[in-house]
């Protein structure tokens, strides 16, 4: 009835990717962990293992984590080959030990992608996502320049759909799950969020072209429409947004080819 009495404690073998630094060789190392409460979260299990390692004089396993409630997008483990581990629509921090059985061997690896180089053990550098955002993942609205919030009505279905896309937590699970390490779902979510709103129209073409070209330059792979990304996404963001971005990209490409270039962009003579 009460959770902590429902199941027995479990013991597991943790097979963890250990890598001392970015250009160091890495390897799997096995650790035994005993008597774990099934109500413990996966990251709490790692905390416990790390304290044990510390006391033994070994270096603890480095892993990324912060909010531990599935919203900040920091945690990023591949558990038994699945980005964020067992369960649907959750991040690594929302995995609980009850998802495993006594005696299980659990393989834990970092998200693997050339664009996400390993920093240490299970931690990767996902700053490539920031670079994509910096290329165009915004609506230019200088502070103070905004009109009244209700000056521009947004149809509710558009706002709701934009919110679906905007729910992305930027964790990189889509890249990790994609067999090609493609960032299409991440980029599509941002392009769609802003492209669905009337505020985002002025920069719509420029945004999709710039974000896609930055994505390509950073060494992400290409989409082969297998949709592993949306299945692994902790927010279950749909790959429909990828189709939407493809359409946007095609349209932007064609428009850019036929649009006459303005003569000048300078300010007034003042």
């Amino acid at each position: 009835m009460v959770a902590e009495n429902t199941t027995k404690n479990l013991s597991i073998t943790l097979r963890v990717w250990r890598q001392a630094g970015p250009n160091q060789p890495g390897k799997f190392v096995d650790y035994q962990s005993k008597d774990l409460n099934p109500n413990m979260s996966f990251l709490e299990m790692l905390d416990v293992v790390n304290d044990e390692l510390t006391l033994k004089g070994e270096e603890p396993i480095a892993f990324a984590h912060d909010c531990r409630e599935g919203i900040c997008g920091t945690c990023s483990c591949t558990i038994n080959g699945k980005a964020h581990g067992p369960g649907k629509g959750i991040a690594t921090c929302q995995v609980y030990m009850r998802a495993f059985r006594d005696g299980d061997v659990i393989t834990v690896e970092p998200f693997r992608a050339t664009a996400f180089p390993i920093v240490k053990d299970l931690i990767t550098d996902r700053s490539a996502f920031d670079k994509i955002q910096q290329a165009g993942g915004f609506i230019t609205a200088r502070t103070g320049s905004a009109p009244d919030a209700n000056a521009l009505p947004v149809p509710k279905p558009d706002a709701d759909l934009a919110m679906d896309a905007a729910a992305c937590i930027g964790c990189g699970a889509c890249v990790a799950a994609c067999k090609n390490a493609s960032a299409m779902l991440f980029v599509a979510a941002k392009v769609s969020h802003l492209g669905l709103l009337p505020q985002g129209q002025a920069e719509r073409d420029q945004r999709v072209l710039a974000m896609v070209s930055t994505m390509d330059a950073l060494g992400f792979g290409n989409c082969t429409n297998q949709y592993e990304c949306s299945a692994a996404c902790p927010k279950l963001i749909t790959h429909d947004f990828i189709a939407r971005m493809n359409r946007d990209y095609l349209g932007a490409t064609l428009r850019s080819a036929f649009k006459p270039a303005p003569l000048g962009t300078g300010g007034g003579a003042g």
């Binding site: 915004f138 609506i139 609205a141 502070t143 103070g144 320049s145 905004a146 009109p147 009244d148 919030a149 521009l152 706002a159 709701d160 934009a162 919110m163 905007a166 969020h193 802003l194 709103l197 505020q199 985002g200």
Partner: peptide
Amino acid sequence: DQCVAQGVPF
């Protein structure tokens, strides 16, 4: 106002 202009989907 500022947040809506930035595209916050309220």
